[in-house]
């Protein structure tokens, strides 16, 4: 690089790198350099918007994001820390706060675990088999997204509440679903059901069944095929679905609010506690819990970006068909 570059640079300042292959190249770049001035006087580029228009559009987008996304985030952390770190950690160490954190983690673990199972089964059924009512099932999977979370919660009240269909029977057998952990978990499972299935169906449909067929024809059993072929192929998509499912499970407010009963220290999840504390003018405590949820959101965002990149890599298989055979 060094001698060649110093030889070429004065002649062709625009192309300092093009000179590793010796004289032929450097003479070429000299000729290019001679032709360059004409090339620079290229016609006006009509494909892009004029500079000021571009600037205004970018500025609008950035300021919108700042006002509606960045600012609220800053406010959450600023309010949480307004009385200093001592007050912040004291608020988080309150028994009520600890109980809410514990409950939220537990409900998230239950609903993510079950939805992982349901989601994989549903996606498997939809992507790999043809059966009557398949379109209907696909539509049904999206239902929790299109129904207001409050309604989702109410459904469980109607089913399991004292005046509900199974309420009397449940009471008679001393089984507590509503205003207890099972109710909260059920409502959360319902609301977060689509995430795993949704992220897997297109992926599995695109991958088709050929690799599975190949595995079976090579003598693999159904389970071997699933764990050795299907699962490795969908693992990033699965993680992506689990991540979104978890974020929603921890942050769910509407449905959980209806079925929880707001029993302090028992059935309050973090989002519910944030509201309660805020209504009681305990701003530091309220925002401290909220800051935990905000941090969860930020972590989710980072992991999501990483996963999306992985998914992209898996989808776009680099092709190299031109080499020898």
């Amino acid at each position: 690089m060094s001698t060649q570059t110093s030889f070429v640079t004065p002649v062709a300042p625009l192309k300092p790198y093009a000179s590793t292959a010796g004289a032929a190249v450097s003479s070429l770049s000299r000729r290019e350099a001679r032709e360059r001035p004409r090339a620079i006087a290229s016609p006006k580029d009509f494909r892009t918007e004029p500079g000021p228009v571009r600037f205004v559009i970018v500025a609008l987008a950035v300021s919108f994001l700042t006002i509606f996304v960045v600012l609220p985030l800053v406010v959450v952390f600023a309010s949480a820390l307004s009385k200093g770190f001592g007050a912040y950690f004291a608020a988080l160490a309150e028994p009520e706060a600890l109980s809410a954190i514990r409950l939220t983690l537990m409900v998230a673990a239950i609903s993510v675990g079950l939805n992982l199972l349901f989601g994989v089964i549903a996606a498997w059924a939809i992507a790999k088999f043809d059966f009557p009512g398949k379109t209907f099932l696909v539509t049904l999977i999206d239902l929790p997204f299109s129904v207001s979370p409050v309604i989702s919660g109410l459904v469980f009240v109607l089913l399991f509440g004292a005046q509900g269909y199974w309420g009397t029977w449940l009471q008679a057998h001393n089984i507590h679903i509503l205003f207890a952990v099972p109710g909260i978990a059920l409502a959360t499972i319902f609301v977060t059901f689509p995430f795993v299935a949704r992220s897997l169906i297109p992926l599995m449909q695109e991958q088709g069944t050929q690799e599975e067929e190949a595995a079976i024809s090579l003598g693999a059993s159904g389970l071997q095929t699933f764990f050795r072929v299907t699962l490795p192929n969908i693992k990033w998509g699965l993680l992506y679905g689990v991540l979104l499912c978890n974020a929603r499970a921890m942050g769910e407010f509407g449905a959980v609010s209806v079925v929880s009963g707001h029993i302090r220290g028992e059935t309050n999840t973090m989002p519910l506690l944030v509201e309660i504390l805020y209504n009681e003018y305990q701003f530091v405590a309220s925002f401290a819990i909220a800051s935990l949820l905000a941090m969860l959101a930020l972590i989710t965002l980072v992991v999501k970006t990483v996963l999306e990149r992985r998914l992209d890599d898996e989808g776009q298989i680099p092709r190299n068909d031109s080499s020898d055979h």
Binding site: E211, E213, A214, A215, R228, V229, P232, N233, E314
Partner: peptide, 9 residues
């Protein structure tokens, strides 16, 4: 298989 169906991972 026509499209090879090699295990991509």
């Amino acid at each position: 298989f026509q499209h090879y169906a090699l295990f991509r991972h």
